[in-house]
Deep mutational scan, measured.
Amino acid sequence: AGSTTLRAVGKLQVRLATKTEPKKLEKYLQKLSALPMTADILAETGIRKTVKRLRKHQHVGDFARDLAARWKKLVLVD
């Protein structure tokens, strides 16, 4: 499952970095939220930084902030 999640995170990371349409960004964040994330995947992909960049986004900022905070707890636990 780890390598599958890693690939999925990579694809979503590229999309988050290149797309600007709020509905698409929200969809990608929801998909990321549903993935079985680990501290290793967060470290290897840097996805948390990508998501943190969206914290001030008018439409998806709250979602991005919550997701980044949830992942921060995951990193602190591991």
Rank of each mutant, 00 (worst) to 15 (best):
E44I: 08
V14S: 11
T45A: 01
V14N: 10
T5H: 04
Y28H: 06
A64G: 02
A8R: 05
T38M: 02
A68I: 09
S3F: 03
L12F: 08
H59D: 11
L35Q: 03
K24V: 10
A64H: 04
L42A: 01
A43I: 14
A1I: 14
Q58K: 11
I47V: 08
L67T: 00
A8D: 15
L42W: 03
D66V: 09
T5L: 12
R65L: 04
G61L: 02
S33V: 04
L29N: 01
G61P: 00
D62E: 12
R53K: 13
A39G: 06
T38E: 00
K31L: 13
L6H: 07
Q58H: 12
R55H: 08
A39W: 10
V51Y: 00
R15Q: 15
R55K: 07
W71Y: 00
P22H: 10
Q58I: 14
L6Q: 09
I47T: 01
Q30P: 03
K27I: 11
R55W: 13
Q58E: 12
K72D: 14
G2A: 10
E44T: 07
T18Q: 12
K19G: 15
H57A: 05
R55V: 15
L74Q: 02
L29D: 02
Q58G: 09
A17C: 12
E21R: 05
T18V: 08
E44S: 06
A43G: 04
T18H: 10
L16N: 01
H57V: 11
V51D: 01
V75K: 05
D40C: 15
G61F: 13
K24W: 06
G61R: 02
K52G: 08
Q58F: 15
I47Q: 05
K27Q: 14
A39L: 10
R48D: 15
R7M: 14
I41E: 03
D62S: 06
D66I: 08
P22S: 07
R53Y: 12
F63R: 05
K27H: 12
Q30K: 09
R70H: 10
K56Q: 14
D62R: 05
I47F: 02
A8Q: 11
E21K: 06
H57W: 05
T4Y: 07
K73G: 09
G2D: 15
L12R: 01
K31A: 14
P22W: 13
R15H: 15
K73W: 05
E44W: 11
L25C: 03
A34P: 01
L76I: 10
L35M: 09
D62L: 02
R48S: 12
Q13E: 05
L67M: 10
P36N: 09
K23F: 10
T18M: 12
P36F: 03
Q13I: 04
G46P: 03
K49L: 13
T4S: 12
A64Q: 01
Q58T: 11
P36D: 11
L25R: 00
I47N: 00
T4A: 10
T38H: 02
H57R: 04
T4D: 15
A17G: 12
L67P: 03
A8N: 11
K24I: 13
T38K: 03
K19F: 14
I47E: 01
K19C: 15
V75A: 09
L42F: 05
W71V: 03
L12I: 12
I47S: 02
K56T: 14
R7D: 15
V60G: 00
L6A: 07
L76M: 11
R53W: 12
E21W: 00
T50G: 03
T20K: 04
I41H: 02
L29V: 06
Y28W: 12
A69G: 06
T45V: 00
D78Y: 06
L54Q: 02
A1L: 10
G46Y: 00
A1G: 10
P22C: 07
K73H: 07
R55Y: 14
R65M: 08
D40R: 12
A64D: 01
R48A: 15
M37A: 01
A17P: 01
H59K: 08
V77D: 13
Q30M: 08
L32E: 00
K56L: 13
K24Y: 10
K73T: 09
L32G: 01
L67C: 03
T38G: 00
R7E: 15
A39E: 06
R15Y: 15
M37I: 11
V51Q: 02
H59A: 11
K52M: 13
L76H: 11
L6W: 06
A34E: 14
A68N: 05
R55P: 01
E21P: 07
L74F: 07
P22V: 07
E44Q: 09
T20P: 11
T50N: 04
A69L: 09
G61K: 06
D78Q: 07
A8P: 04
L67Q: 04
Y28S: 07
A43H: 09
K24N: 13
L6M: 09
L29A: 00
V9K: 00
K49N: 15
E26H: 06
L54P: 00
K72P: 01
I47C: 04
A8W: 14
K23E: 15
S33E: 11
K31P: 03
H57Y: 02
K52Q: 13
R70Q: 09
E26K: 07
P36G: 02
T50S: 06
K56F: 12
P36R: 05
K52N: 14
T18S: 11
M37N: 10
K11R: 13
A34M: 09
K11S: 14
L29Y: 01
L12P: 00
E26C: 04
K11L: 13
Y28C: 08
G2H: 13
L29C: 05
L42S: 02
K49V: 12
T50Y: 05
L16A: 01
P22I: 03
D66Q: 09
K56R: 11
D62K: 08
A69D: 12
V75F: 13
G2E: 15
V9L: 07
V14G: 06
K31I: 14
F63S: 04
L74W: 07
E21F: 06
T50L: 12
W71K: 00
R70L: 04
K23M: 13
G46M: 04
L54E: 01
A43W: 08
V75S: 10
A43S: 08
Q13P: 02
T38W: 03
A68W: 11
L25Y: 01
L25D: 01
V14C: 06
I41F: 00
A17K: 09
K31Q: 14
K24A: 12
G10V: 14
K49G: 14
K24M: 14
K27E: 15
A68V: 10
V14M: 11
K72W: 00
S33I: 01
T18I: 06
L67S: 01
K19E: 15
T20I: 07
E21G: 08
V77F: 07
Q58V: 14
A69Q: 10
R48Y: 14
V60L: 06
D62V: 04
K31M: 13
L25W: 02
A43E: 13
D78K: 10
A69T: 10
I41A: 05
K49Q: 14
D78A: 08
K27C: 11
L29Q: 01
K49M: 13
A17T: 14
K73V: 06
K72M: 06
K31V: 14
A39N: 09
V75N: 04
V9E: 07
L67Y: 03
A34R: 06
L12S: 04
T50D: 09
L74P: 01
H59I: 13
D40G: 11
T20V: 11
T4F: 07
Q30S: 05
V75E: 14
Q58M: 14
R7P: 01
K23T: 13
R48F: 15
K31E: 15
V51W: 03
H59Q: 11
Q30T: 05
T45G: 03
T20S: 10
K52P: 03
K49C: 13
R7T: 14
K52W: 14
A1K: 07
R70P: 00
A39H: 07
L29R: 01
A68R: 01
K24Q: 13
T4Q: 11
T4C: 10
A1S: 11
I47P: 00
L25H: 00
T4W: 12
V75C: 13
L35R: 00
V60K: 04
P36W: 06
V77Y: 10
L76Q: 12
A39S: 08
K23S: 14
T50E: 08
P22E: 06
K23R: 09
